[in-house]
Design a protein around this nucleic acid. Structure first.
Lengths: 219, 219
DNA sequence: GTCTATATGTCGATAGAC
DNA sequence: GTCTATCGACATATAGAC
């Protein structure tokens, strides 16, 4: 449930060395951006000196690339799992809600790794971006296919272009990283409900769908 | 129509010195962020040397603060003008559409000054942020009041909290800076339509409102 | 108003001891 | 694996000539 990001290192041993650098690097990167995150800062918060980083990584860019890669892997896995669990569900609204919830959970609960894609990716060096772009494109394609399927099922109205429809939904979810506080009174599920409801009813011509549970005390 | 951002300097004279630095600084800031925008770069593209900047500004932070201030003034003026022009309009959807259009026009046509608020504000030094925060809060309050009025009129459903409603709409508009190309086939008005339609129908319980003109060839 | 020259600091990265 | 020490590049900012 509260599993930490899993690096290619064998699980079971407590986070040390490389893993600590990744965790700290992701946190600093998500909060301060690429340029303002210094290796000296990463090293200090990881309990070592700046020079020691180069035993684990070849460069600052490589550390950042690895953080972004792990983050995109995490949301992609969360997406696939949610799709798998809801594939037998008839109601397309429930399916949409499941993946939105999965994306938001990854964004807020998995933590800094995924958040870096919203806050730091765009201003990272070109080499870093191009190294992670295939993973990002693949993830966006998953969303595009899902929304296209919902339109094909007649569950979503075909307003706007498919691309704009996808971008609007992803913007709604990702932008929340700048203002939503998951430790506050509103839960992540509340946020998922508000976004799905907005997007869903907005993209279709019909009135309220009865399937969306807006009860804030649901498990 | 194509008026440039007006600095506190007297209008009429061609942009020189301080104004050129502001224009270049805003452009670089919007594209590369705060930390990656160097004064050497700003000076070079403005046709002068780095040291000369300090005749016009006391520090990099002050230049950035001024850019952000001008940007927020621009969107605020655009908002007020749109509200003034549509205040006598009965249809609340038309009023909402007018301000969304005004915000997007300021974001894309006025250019880098307003875009910096989306791309660079969050990662600017604390002193810079606090120096512009009152202007930002005032602008957000305008949107909050407008949406609250629409809810009070029964034009928008009172789903979610008022704050979340406002943030979602602003997120939809501002996030488009990362992917929308105003020089492409889709116009800014098209984007405004797509956002208003999504938000409007999504936030209300009724079906399509007949007032929104979705004709892409409207003047 | 703009220039040159420079002070001062911090960054990423390397080399080699332990 | 982590340390110390340091190199070279580049940043903001300053001082003073023109």
């Amino acid at each position: 449930m509260t599993s930490r990001p899993t690096a290619p290192t064998s699980p079971g041993d407590e986070p040390s060395g490389r893993q600590r650098l990744l965790d700290v690097g992701a946190a600093l990167l998500a909060e301060h951006g690429y340029a303002d995150t210094t290796l000296r800062q990463v090293a200090r918060e990881a309990g070592m000196k700046a020079g020691s980083i180069y035993y684990h990584f070849d460069s600052k860019d490589q550390l950042l690339t690895e953080v972004l890669r792990l983050g995109m892997t995490a949301v992609t896995d969360a997406f696939d799992e949610a799709v798998g669990h809801s594939r037998d569900t008839a109601d397309p609204l429930v399916r949409l809600h499941a993946v939105v919830q999965a994306h938001l959970r990854a964004l807020f609960e998995f933590g800094p790794y995924t958040a870096t894609h919203v806050t730091a990716f765009h201003y990272a060096p070109k080499d870093v971006r191009s190294g992670v772009l295939p993973l990002r494109d693949a993830y966006e394609a998953k969303w595009q296919n899902l929304l296209d399927d919902l339109v094909a099922d007649g569950a979503l109205a075909a307003t706007n272009t498919p691309r704009v429809r996808r971008l609007h939904l992803l913007d709604l979810m990702n932008s929340a990283i700048h203002w939503f506080d998951p430790t506050g009174t509103e839960t992540i599920d509340d946020l998922a409900n508000s976004i799905v409801e907005l997007f869903w009813v907005g993209a279709t011509n019909s009135a309220h769908s009865p399937a969306l549970n807006t009860d804030r005390n649901s498990p």
